[in-house]
Amino acid sequence: MDRTAPPHLTTPRPTTSPWTFTQLLSATRRGARLARLLGAGQLRSWDAPPALTERAEVVIAELAANAALHGRVPGRCFRLTLVLDPASQVLRVEVSDARGDLHPRLATDAAGAGALTPGGRGLMLVEALADHWDCVPFPPSGKTVRAVLRATRL
Results as ranks from 00 to 15, higher is better:
Pro137Cys: 03
Cys77Arg: 14
Arg76Pro: 07
Gln42Asp: 09
Asp85Gly: 09
Leu129Asp: 08
Ile60Gln: 03
Pro18Tyr: 10
His8Trp: 14
Ala56Gly: 12
Arg33His: 13
Arg121His: 14
Ala87Tyr: 05
Thr11Lys: 12
Glu57Phe: 08
Arg76Tyr: 12
Glu94Trp: 02
Thr53Gln: 13
Ala113Pro: 08
Ala65Ser: 14
Asp97Phe: 01
Leu52Met: 12
Ala32Gln: 03
Gly41Arg: 10
Ala56Asn: 07
Gly100Met: 01
Gln23Cys: 12
Phe21Lys: 10
Thr81Ala: 10
Ala48Leu: 06
Ala67Asn: 00
Ser26Ile: 10
Arg44Gln: 04
Pro50Asp: 11
Gly142Ser: 00
Pro118His: 05
Ser26Tyr: 10
Ser141Ala: 14
Ala48Tyr: 04
Arg13Pro: 04
Phe138Tyr: 07
Glu54Ser: 15
Pro14Met: 11
Ala40Thr: 15
Ala151His: 08
Arg72Asp: 06
Pro139Gln: 06
Phe78Ala: 11
Asp97Ala: 02
Asp134His: 11
Glu127Ala: 11
Leu106Gln: 04
Val136Arg: 14
Ala64Lys: 10
Arg44Ser: 04
Trp133Tyr: 12
Arg44Leu: 08
Gly71Ala: 02
Arg99Lys: 01
Ala67Ile: 12
Leu34Glu: 14
Val148Gly: 06
Arg76Gln: 15
Pro50Thr: 09
Leu116Glu: 05
Ser88Trp: 06
Gly39Asp: 00
Leu102Tyr: 01
Glu127Tyr: 11
Arg92Thr: 15
Leu38Arg: 15
Thr108Tyr: 02
Val145Arg: 01
Leu82His: 06
Thr108Asp: 05
Leu129Ser: 05
Ala32Glu: 06
Asp131Phe: 02
Ala5Gln: 12
Thr22Met: 09
Thr28Leu: 14
Asp109Lys: 04
Asp131Glu: 04
Gly119Trp: 00
Gly39Pro: 04
Phe78Tyr: 13
Leu63Glu: 09
Val126Pro: 02
Arg30Cys: 11
Ser88Ala: 13
Ser141Trp: 07
Cys77Met: 14
Met1Ala: 14
Arg44Phe: 01
Leu38Glu: 08
Ala111Asn: 12
Gly41His: 10
Thr22Pro: 05
Leu84Gly: 04
Leu84Met: 12
Leu129Thr: 05
Arg30Pro: 10
Val136Leu: 08
Leu125Val: 04
Leu116Arg: 07
Val59His: 02
Leu91Met: 12
Leu63Trp: 02
Arg153Val: 10
Ala68Lys: 03
Ala130Ile: 09
Thr11Arg: 13
Cys135Asn: 00
Arg55Gln: 10
Gln42Ser: 09
Phe138Lys: 04
Glu94Phe: 00
Leu34Asp: 13
Leu129Glu: 11
Arg33Asp: 14
Leu129Arg: 05
Arg3Asp: 14
Leu43Val: 05
Pro74Gly: 09
Leu84Pro: 06
Pro49Gly: 08
Val145Gly: 03
Leu80Thr: 00
Gly41Gln: 12
Glu57Lys: 10
Trp19Phe: 15
Pro140Met: 00
Trp19Met: 15
Leu24Asn: 11
Val145Trp: 00
